[in-house]
Structures are given as C-alpha cells and as structure tokens.
C-alpha cells in the first residue's frame, strides 16, 4: 500500500498510549543503556574500547568526589559563561543596531550569514599564539562562535516586529522604555530566546572543543588527556557528566523561556 493513499478513508486514530510520555522516554533510555551493557558484556564492542555502563556508574562517585573534576567543570562552565555573556551582550546590541539601520544591515548581511558557516575553531591556534595558553583564547573562540546566531536572530526578531505594534506604541504615547518593555521586547522574545539558547550551545561546544585541542584545564582538556592515557572508564564518566551538564543548562534555558514568555502558559 502506498504511503500516500488518498482513496481510502483513514482508519480511526488509535486510542492514545496509556503509558505517560515521560515513562516511555525513561524506558527508552533504560533500553539503550541495557543494550550498551549487553554489547560490552558479549564482547561485541571490545574493539571500540568502550567500558560497560555499570563500570562507569561504579566509577562515577569517585570521579565526582575528586577536587580535580570540580575544578575542571568550574573552569569549563566559567569559560562558557564568560563567552556567552559577552556574546549575548554584543549580539543583542549589535542586532538592535543593525535592525535600526537597515542599510548597514543590508551591506553586512552576507558577511554575517557567511560567518555562520565559518568553523571559528580554526582561528584558535592564532589566538593561542597571540594570547598564550589560558582562558582568553578559549573565551574569544567561544565568543565568536556564539555571537553570530545571537546577532542574526536579534536582527531578524527586531526586524519582524509588526508595524501595527510599533504604531500602537507611538499612538499610546509610550516612552521609549515603555514601548520596549510593554510591547516591542515581549513581541520579539519568541525569536530572541532561541537565538540566545543557540548562542549558549555554541559557546559550550566551542569551549569544550578548544579545551580538547590545547588547554591546561577544563572538561574538554581532561577528556582529551584521559583519552591519550587510555583511561577509558574515566573518559566516559567525564563524557556522561558533560552531557548531563549540557542537557541541564538547556533545560534551564527552557525553564527561563517558559517563565519569561507568558504567552506559552
């Protein structure tokens, strides 16, 4: 039977699954972990040098109990946060300026869109030469990665404000602050927030990536070091915690989004 069978009436939709979605998701995660465990136990994953999840789980408390892990995590998060904060400020301000001056935006647009495609990490060695080993070259790399999506989405968000909303603000004799706070910013938020979220994801990816290449501390650096020392279990423990951090940060952003965007409630 063809997928696009237009002749036959659709069968009535099946009654909704009785299992709540979160339970199904948890079951899926458990099944994947079980498959991983089985793959390692059966020797199928031996050539990949992957440790079993249970082994990682046993090692987890020891890694989390160590001071080194937390100093690495703090370093990575701080670097990410610095790069993201700078990117958010510069991106929002730059996007607002470009939305205000469409001619300038039109001239710069191909460069900005092009910048989106550039893997900024290739400039990391240059930054290392100029600024030396430390957080500065990493912050700079992560900033450059993160600023582009924030700037572009800000520009689009402010450019797509409805003319009726602008007119409304003026006709109500809003001050600039009132217009921004009551009408224009909330109207732009549905596009602004995803831009910021994307910026954070880019900042974190660039930070860990740069640390992985050359650094003196940080989760990315540690994962690279453990890899080179054949400490597979510890490496995977770091990777798992890293993933947990990233997912946690993303959830935090979603939570903020839900609080700020009152139209979603």
């Amino acid at each position: 039977m063809s997928v696009l069978n237009l002749d036959r009436p659709r069968p009535p939709a099946r009654p909704a699954l009785r299992v709540p979605a979160w339970a199904a998701r948890a079951a899926l995660a458990a099944a994947l972990l079980a498959a991983w465990q089985l793959a390692v136990a059966s020797g199928a994953a031996a050539s990949a040098g992957v440790p079993a999840p249970l082994e990682c789980l046993r090692r987890l408390p020891e890694v989390l109990g160590g001071a080194r892990f937390w100093s690495d995590a703090a370093r990575s998060l701080l670097t990410t946060a610095e790069a993201f904060a700078a990117a958010a400020l510069a991106g929002l301000a730059g996007g607002a300026v470009l939305a205000r001056f469409p001619l300038v935006a039109k001239i710069l647009e191909p460069y900005l869109v092009g910048a989106y495609a550039v893997p900024v990490v290739v400039f990391y060695p240059t930054f290392l030469v100029v600024f030396g080993l430390g957080t500065v070259p990493i912050v700079l790399t992560a900033f450059l990665m993160a600023v582009v999506p924030v700037l572009l989405t800000t520009m689009v968000a402010l450019g797509e404000l409805r003319p009726a909303h602008r007119k409304l603000a003026r006709s109500l004799c809003c001050t600039r602050g009132q217009a921004a706070r009551l009408i224009l910013l909330p109207s732009a938020l549905p596009l602004l927030l995803p831009g910021l979220k994307l910026g954070f994801v880019y900042a974190m990816a660039a930070t860990v990536g740069a640390e992985f290449i050359v650094a003196d501390a940080g989760l990315g650096f540690r994962i690279g070091e453990l890899y080179r020392n054949f400490e597979a279990v510890d490496m995977y423990v770091h990777i798992i915690v890293m993933i947990a951090f990233a997912v946690g940060c993303n959830s935090l952003f979603n939570l903020v989004e839900r609080i700020v965007r009152r139209d979603l409630t």
């Binding site: 409805r162 003319p163 009726a164 909303h165 007119k167 409304l168 009408i183 909330p186 109207s187 938020l189 965007r261 009152r262 139209d263």
Partner: peptide, 8 residues
Amino acid sequence: QDDSTLHW
C-alpha cells in the same frame, strides 16, 4: 487594520 493585540 492589522491585528495589534498583544498575544502574550
């Protein structure tokens, strides 16, 4: 003419 209500 256009909808100018604030959806939030």
